[in-house]
Nucleic acid binder design. Sequence first.
DNA 1: AGCCAGGAAGAAT
DNA 2: ATTCTTCATGGC
Length: 276
Amino acid sequence: MTTFSLEKTPYFDIAATLECGQVFRFVPIDGGYRVCATSHRADVLDRGDHYDVICDDADFFKRYFDFDTDYAAIQAGLEDGGALSEAIAFGRGIHILRQDPIETIFSFIVSQNNHIPRIKGIIERICEALGEDKGGYFAFPTLEALASAGEDFYASIGAGYRAAYLDRAAKAMLVVDLEGWSRLDTPTLRAQLLAMYGVGRKVADCILLFGFNRFDVFPVDTWIKKVYADVYPDMPADKMSTLLVQKYGKYAGFVQQWLFYFKRTKKTMDKSNILS
DNA sequence: AGCCAGGAAGAAT
DNA sequence: ATTCTTCATGGC
């Protein structure tokens, strides 16, 4: 076990970073959050002026939390004085995590047409059944374990109709050269992802954004459709995505994340905040 | 109780 | 090339 600290500024907030929908293997703990990623685990504790990260691999988590991106500069360049500025202000502390590609592929296949609480449960059960017991938590399973589990296993842990998608994706990824994939340009890499059974445009774009850190993407899901319902009425999701990438270019992925987090979180706040 | 969820595949048009 | 239907499951 080692401990390192993360700077606490308006441009990094652990709650916003974890709760914004990009990642599923985390739980709130007293004074912070417990996060699992691949075979590693970290406790991120709020110390007032900074965060302490207590973990098994400091180098892994220093990279994971992405302190190499200048979020302040990106946000400043995107301010529109309107709805986007409001969403940026709300999610100012979000960092786009540098997640493992395989874990991201599986997580977002699970995510399709599914609620976030249930997505978390399905991923957790996959780790418990197939992942290495690290003593207190389970690692995300190896590709070999995922590929030999079988479709019936994924159905048995409640994946529903996505069971076949997960089984076939695992077997397909066994023969993929991930290093080679990471060197492809975004449209070519998207085409590779779309060739997988169960991966459509939206899931592919989430994998590109969260697993390969490509920001020239704009995943369009049900919440983003609601955001743009009045601006682009009845527009198909794929077309909307392409349009928004053209609009926001290499920062499209950040914009998408701020808008998604704002729209999805504000709704729950409105429901619970009865007094106002 | 029913609606809906970070959609995608396959069929119909 | 576009729209329609179907697909399991459970949180709320």
